[in-house]
């Protein structure tokens, strides 16, 4: 979980939630949504993505809807992590909550489609195996790292507070 390897699929700025998961598929199953992931940008996306593949984009990845089905569809389609200059707020939280690592890196312009990256989530270091370059992403904040390390918000809640919640002491401690 702490180190991820994958091949890059690269896209541009402002890839919004209607492009990632077009509204007409929202009534379908998550698997069907995954089959149509990124259809608004690239109809070949699901054919091209390799398991654990890394989606690299520019500014503002994921604006628009609060639909968590966007990161879920990407994860089910095989995406192992997303690296962008920055993310829209709700998408960022949703990705973390479903256990899909998202990294903010100002150097994404140096990454090309097809490059192979190795990402250290703990330090935020991104090694480009193809070019030999190394980039520094913003290290993940403590709450984000805690949730990602647990595998997402549900296992995090289960592990930390599941028993208390089940016992009726449903109080999430003020940790941060």
């Amino acid at each position: 979980m702490l180190t991820l390897h994958g091949k890059v699929l690269k896209y541009g700025d402002n890839i919004n939630t209607d492009l990632i998961t077009p509204p007409q598929y929202l009534e379908k199953s998550l698997e069907v949504m995954a089959q149509h992931a990124m259809e608004g940008v690239d109809e070949q996306f699901t054919a091209k993505i390799t398991p654990g593949g890394i989606l690299v984009a520019g500014n503002n990845f994921g604006p628009g809807s609060s639909r968590e089905t966007s990161p879920i569809a990407l994860k089910l389609a095989g995406v192992g992590a997303i690296v962008a200059k920055f993310f829209a707020r709700i998408f960022y939280r949703n990705a973390v909550n479903i256990g899909l690592p998202v990294l903010e890196c100002s150097e994404v312009d140096k990454i090309s489609d097809g490059d192979v990256l190795s990402i250290n989530l703990q330090t935020g270091t991104i090694a480009n195996i193809t070019t030999g370059e190394t980039y520094q992403a913003t290290p993940l904040s403590e709450p984000v790292m805690d949730i990602l390390s647990a595998g997402g918000l549900i296992p995090f809640l289960e592990k930390k507070y599941g028993r208390d919640i089940a016992d009726g002491k449903n109080e999430a401690p003020h940790r941060y």
């Binding site: 809807s65 709700i90 939280r93 949703n94 809640l157 919640i165 449903n170």
Partner: peptide, 20 residues
Amino acid sequence: TGIGSTEMLGVLVSGQIWLR
């Protein structure tokens, strides 16, 4: 503010949400 479904689940069981 808008949140995703998993985040909402956390709110439903705990009544709380982490915010920056």
